[in-house]
């Protein structure tokens, strides 16, 4: 297994004239959790979306530099973006289950990818829900609407839906910011378990969460990475004064 799942090299991103990301270089290590922190508008969510080309959908975005997934540049014109997003999946801030049953939510991706066999789908749904630490809570309600679940359960349905298509990298954009404290802890526990099989990149505004769950942390400010290091180092001995000021709540 390679040390780095993704490599970002000299990446610049512009929204029309505005440069939102400036010369970003970052190695995303395999089976590790990389946290992106920084004040609002620093570019961390934009950067997360670079990793599975979600910014392609936005008008006026221009990108320079390279992003490699297993040594292949994902910004080459011939890359199949749908296939890319199957490999690099994303969980959003607000749980966004489809208005259908839990089962259909999780089976949605596999069905789109052509799996029709009922037993095979049952297996995938159970395995994905187990991986999302939701199976025991929800096994009796598989055919009820996912919208009737609590926020924390909905978010884990979304994670299960993502896992059902067997991604390699999971991007999470503030996955627990809309959840209550207990659901937040459940999602955090889940992230720890998931890293055994997946490479995870998480954007969070919750500093303690970054400190608790991640292995590596990158601090973004004004579109640049100010400091990137092992999480323990960032939260105990940051090298840059701006990092110290941000994590200790002195600005931002």
């Amino acid at each position: 297994m390679k040390k780095n799942k993704m490599l970002v090299r000299d990446l610049n991103l512009y929204y029309m004239d505005f440069q939102a990301l400036k010369k970003i270089n970052l190695d995303i290590e395999t089976n590790r959790i990389t946290a992106l922190i920084g004040p609002s508008g620093c570019g961390k969510s934009t950067f997360l979306r670079v990793l599975n080309r979600m910014n392609d959908l936005i008008d006026g975005v221009r990108i320079e530099g390279s992003v490699f997934l297993d040594e292949e540049d994902i910004y080459r014109p011939e890359v199949d973006v749908v296939a890319l997003r199957k490999r690099v999946g994303m969980v959003f801030q607000r749980p966004n289950p489809f208005p259908m049953s839990v089962y259909d939510n999780v089976a949605y991706g596999p069905r789109v990818h052509g799996i029709r066999n009922k037993n095979r789908l049952d297996e995938i749904v159970e395995h994905s829900l187990r991986s999302a630490a939701l199976w025991d809570e929800i096994r009796d309600r598989l055919f009820k609407s996912a919208l009737g679940l609590s926020g924390g359960q909905q978010q884990r349905v979304c994670i299960a839906r993502l896992l059902a298509i067997e991604p390699e990298v999971v991007l999470m954009d503030e996955p627990s910011s809309a959840l209550d404290p207990i659901s937040t802890l459940k999602v955090e526990e889940l992230i720890q378990i998931l890293k055994q099989e997946y490479t995870i990149v998480i954007v969070t505004h919750n500093m303690q969460q970054a400190a608790r769950v991640s292995d590596l942390t990158a601090f973004f400010l004004n579109g640049e990475i100010v400091e990137f290091s092992i999480t323990d180092e960032i939260f105990t001995r940051p090298k840059d004064q701006r990092t110290e000021d941000y994590i200790t709540g002195r600005f931002g």
Binding site: M207, Q208, A211, F235, T236, R237, P238, E244, I247, T248
Partner: peptide, 8 residues
């Protein structure tokens, strides 16, 4: 206050 880094 959950101090970290130098504060801690």
């Amino acid at each position: 206050q959950q101090p970290i880094a130098r504060d801690l």
